[in-house]
Amino acid sequence: MSSVISRTGEAVEADSGPAQHPGPARRSLPASAAPVAASADAPATVPMAAPAAVPATAPKAAPTAVPVRLRGAVASLGGRPVLRGIDLTVRPGEVVALLGANGSGKSTTVKTVIGSVPLEHGALELFGMPYAKFRSWHRIGYVPQRTTAASGVPATVREVVSTGRLPQHRLLPFRRKDRAAVDRALDAVGMLDRAEDGVAALSGGQHQRVLIARALVGTPDLLIMDEPMAGVDAASQQVLADTLRREVERGAAVLLVLHELGPLEPLIDRAVVLRDGCVAHDGPPPPNTGQHALPGHDHVHPHTDDHLTTPGLLA
């Protein structure tokens, strides 16, 4: 498996960085903790756990470098200050949820972490490397917030997911092991049978699963997901939660932007709540976070129907 070799190579590189905190003891996650309690009405056609999706790389060498360390992040969009000094750390193997109301700076924080929004002040380290020197992008899997699927030209599910493999094959031709990795990632999200379908024909939940497969295809050490549950039907939420649990068990760290904890709650180690571009809470996930606490919040459970919106979108 090439991923093992490359990861080992990276681990060596990461070790040369500054010494970091060791990660917290991994919380054991019972596989029986069904994230969506009311999953009984999920259609049986959705494959749940796909064993082939978990590479048999067994015990992974514990990475010592801290995946994300953001210090005093200040950023603005179009002249309007959005982040006013955010501190955010994601330790190895940790699942961190970024919570907060709309406009509190959750997505901007994620975009500064991936370098889409430049930092005006503050410092960003990824896997122990300053952002400017960071090159190991293959260790990061990014799932953007997205509601629409297609671009101007048709593309199949496989073609979109294959772009996640670019850090591995680079300028070399796409080989059999790359194709196998794409198959595994598609299988993990239950979309292998739709591999040759056009992305324009997918529902919102299926599209989200494709974007997650695209992030998983390089077996990343850090998954960054921006509102993965937005506009996702219950069946896809279940698949997503299962996939995420397998990634966490594999040892990946996860940074999630969420509107509310919802079905992912049992997976989350720590919650960082933002308010007006500042960190308002950093610690164990608070009960009833997000919009639940606000008056007038209409709590409607997501349903199996693809066309219905989730509470995150309604709020």
Partner: peptide, 21 residues
């Protein structure tokens, strides 16, 4: 020759940046 790279950039520029290309 650069079909996969250009496809990735034009399909989702932000994601392409995170892949390090």
């Amino acid at each position: 020759g650069l079909r996969r790279q250009l496809f990735a950039v034009c399909q989702d520029e932000e994601f392409a940046r995170v892949t390090g290309i």
